[in-house]
């Protein structure tokens, strides 16, 4: 009786293990099939380089340049805000804060990660957007900057915890060696601790970008959703993700518009894939470097 049972369990476990890869492949194939259908209608060049996204005009134009730039603006802004803050927070938590306070801070940052993005988007609409509107005297506060700020909050937990891990896993001997030479704590941090954790920091930045570029709900709510080429952070933008979310409901299945949204999905897939690959590379390097000690 035992053998068939073992057999079944074994197969079940095997299937579960393989399922994850299988699903990724299936999703990618589906995405490719639907997305590539667009290119019968529109050339790849015009999809990638056309500066107009007019999916329901006649004739429609499916140029993703404004959307790519929208995503780029929001992501860049979020990273510029989140990385220095995250780095500083991680340094404070791991090197300067008393232990009890560091624990409170770490819990707080984990809580930040637990806030649903729609709630952040909602808070952004109600508080941040009016604030930006008044400060910069804008017609509307729903801008790339608003999106960047809210997304910076979302990327912070990832960035802080990965950098903190990297700093904590530095050998204690680096710090001791530096202090024993008469360095101050701050000199030790920026001359030894940060360089020694640099791979981890790069990985944190990459994963932060990955977190931000794939985010949909909050950006849909607070970036203003204008599919135009942005020239400043104080303009409304439309990201790749928000485009899919906003237009999927109204696109006629089987139309060029419908396929173009899948094609955007392919682009997003490729971007996240590259970013995750880079992050993995850096994380791997940082662990390898540490193991030598």
């Amino acid at each position: 009786m035992r053998r068939p049972f073992d057999y079944i369990i074994e197969k079940l476990v095997f299937f579960s293990g393989v399922a994850s890869i299988l699903f990724v492949i299936l999703i990618f194939v589906f995405l490719l099939k639907e997305g590539l259908s667009l290119f019968g209608e529109v050339s790849i060049q015009s999809f990638l380089f056309n500066v107009n996204w007019f999916p329901i005009s006649d004739p429609p134009q499916f140029g993703i340049v404004p959307l790519l730039l929208g995503s780029l603006f929001v992501t860049l802004g979020a990273i510029v805000i989140a990385v220095p803050m995250g780095l500083a927070a991680a340094i404070y938590i791991s090197e300067f804060a008393p232990r009890w306070f560091a624990n409170i801070l770490k819990t707080g940052i984990e809580l930040l990660a637990a806030i649903p993005s729609i709630v952040l988007g909602f808070i952004g609409i109600v508080t941040l957007a009016p604030f930006l509107k008044t400060v910069f005297r804008l017609p509307s506060g729903l801008t790339a900057l608003a999106g960047s700020i809210m997304l910076a909050f979302m990327a912070m937990p990832t960035i802080v915890s990965i950098i903190e891990d990297a700093i904590v896993s530095n050998p204690k001997s680096y710090k001791e060696g530096s202090l024993a030479l008469g360095a101050t704590r701050w000199q030790t941090v920026y001359r030894v601790t940060i360089p020694a954790a640099s791979s981890g920091i790069l990985a944190a930045i990459m994963l932060g970008i990955g977190r931000v570029i794939g985010e949909t709900m909050a950006v849909l709510m607070i970036t203003g959703n204008a599919a135009v080429i942005p020239t400043s952070f104080l303009q409304p933008v439309r990201t790749l993700t928000a485009t899919i979310a906003a237009e999927m409901g109204e696109a006629v299945a089987g139309s060029g518009h419908y396929y173009s949204l899948f094609a955007i999905g392919i682009i997003l897939f490729i971007i996240s894939f590259i970013i995750n690959l880079l992050a993995d590379l850096f994380l791997h390097r940082s662990r390898k470097g540490k193991r030598k000690r």
């Binding site: 001997s173 680096y174 001791e176 060696g177 530096s178 202090l179 024993a180 030479l181 008469g182 030894v192």
Partner: peptide, 21 residues
């Protein structure tokens, strides 16, 4: 003044601990 003291009294550790520089 710990900085001045450690400049005057230096230390070599059990495990060599060069910085990763």
């Amino acid at each position: 003044d710990l900085i001045a003291l450690r400049k005057k009294v230096g230390m070599v550790f059990q495990r060599p601990n060069p910085f990763p520089l």
